[in-house]
């Protein structure tokens, strides 16, 4: 598969912080077109800094980030990069610019110089893609957290990006809002948009094609969610926790019970446990 983003030997540190250590320390990562990549790590692991590298909000101290063949260090083509790689942030309140939903969504196309008719088309499409069309004349202030985030996603979609980076976009939401946003993310990925999801909720990582674990500015491991989830030691050492169903299965494995550990959610866990209980009963 073709790569949409290529990161090579990336180093970065904030000049004005006390800690001398690099925030990003020799990152090498290729993001493939159409894939769903998830980056997890605890707060301060460097994952949000990495996110800001992907659309040129930050530039590497050393190394390169290349989006569709354009380096983010190339000032002349920043707009092209940002048009290609959209970004949804953490705080829903701090990324909505206008007092009317549809005017906010129009902000991107307006900046790109789209004609009013084209902007209108894109805004309507983007709002229906996130199921927010009925709120187009509402004030964002009146929306729930999940709805605000979906408006923010629509604002990015209206630029027609090939890739969307979600920088902890679910961290401040309640469970309902989180579900809404994750459902939207999955839907967009199925429609062919490359997704980079940055989170510390491990349960959101299960739908990803690949999962990166970050710690101390380094990518420790990139693999399928299943392979990462079953690396219990790695997860514990990086200050993360498994989703509850996996925690239960791990606890059972630790007790010496032979159980299928290919488990993501409650249904899988139930099936695995039922299998063991059935075996126990038959013995």
């Amino acid at each position: 598969m073709e790569n949409i983003i290529e990161i090579k030997n990336l180093y970065f540190s904030y000049v004005d912080t006390d800690n001398n250590g690099a925030v990003l320390d020799n990152i090498n990562l290729d993001i493939k077109k159409g894939e769903f990549l998830c980056i997890v790590g605890h707060n301060g692991s460097g994952k949000s800094t990495l996110a800001k590298m992907l659309n040129g909000l930050l530039r590497p101290d050393k190394g390169t980030v290349c989006v569709n063949g354009i380096y983010t260090s190339d000032d002349k083509h920043l707009i092209d990069i940002r048009k290609t790689v959209g970004m949804v942030f953490q705080n829903p309140d701090n990324q909505i610019i206008a007092s009317v939903v549809e005017e906010d969504v129009a902000f991107g196309p307006e900046n790109l110089g789209c004609s009013p008719q084209e902007s209108r088309r894109r805004v309507d499409q983007a709002l229906s893609a996130v199921d927010m069309a009925e709120y187009k004349n509402t004030s964002p202030y009146k929306l729930s957290g999940g709805q605000k985030q979906r408006v923010a996603i629509a604002g990015v979609l209206a630029m027609r990006p090939q890739c969307i980076v979600f920088d902890e976009s679910t961290a401040m939401l309640d469970p309902k809002g989180r579900k809404e946003v994750i459902a939207t993310v999955n839907k967009l990925n199925k429609q062919g948009i490359t997704v980079v999801l940055i989170t510390h909720f491990m349960e959101e990582a299960r739908f990803a094609d690949r999962l990166c674990i970050m710690d101390n500015g380094k990518i420790l491991k990139t693999d399928t969610p299943y392979n990462i989830f079953s690396d219990y030691e790695l997860i514990e050492n990086t200050g993360l926790t498994l989703p509850e169903p996996m925690k239960l299965i791990k606890a059972l494995v630790d007790c010496g019970i032979k159980i299928d550990n290919k488990v993501f959610d409650e249904k899988d866990a139930c099936a695995a446990i039922a299998e063991v209980l059935k075996g126990g009963a038959e013995k």
Binding site: I79, G86, P109, G113, A152
Partner: peptide, 16 residues
């Protein structure tokens, strides 16, 4: 957020 949405000053901006 504004920069990520290609904001580049008023130049070339067309209101919807």
């Amino acid at each position: 957020a504004m920069e990520s949405r290609c904001y580049n000053g008023g130049e070339g901006r067309v209101r919807m």
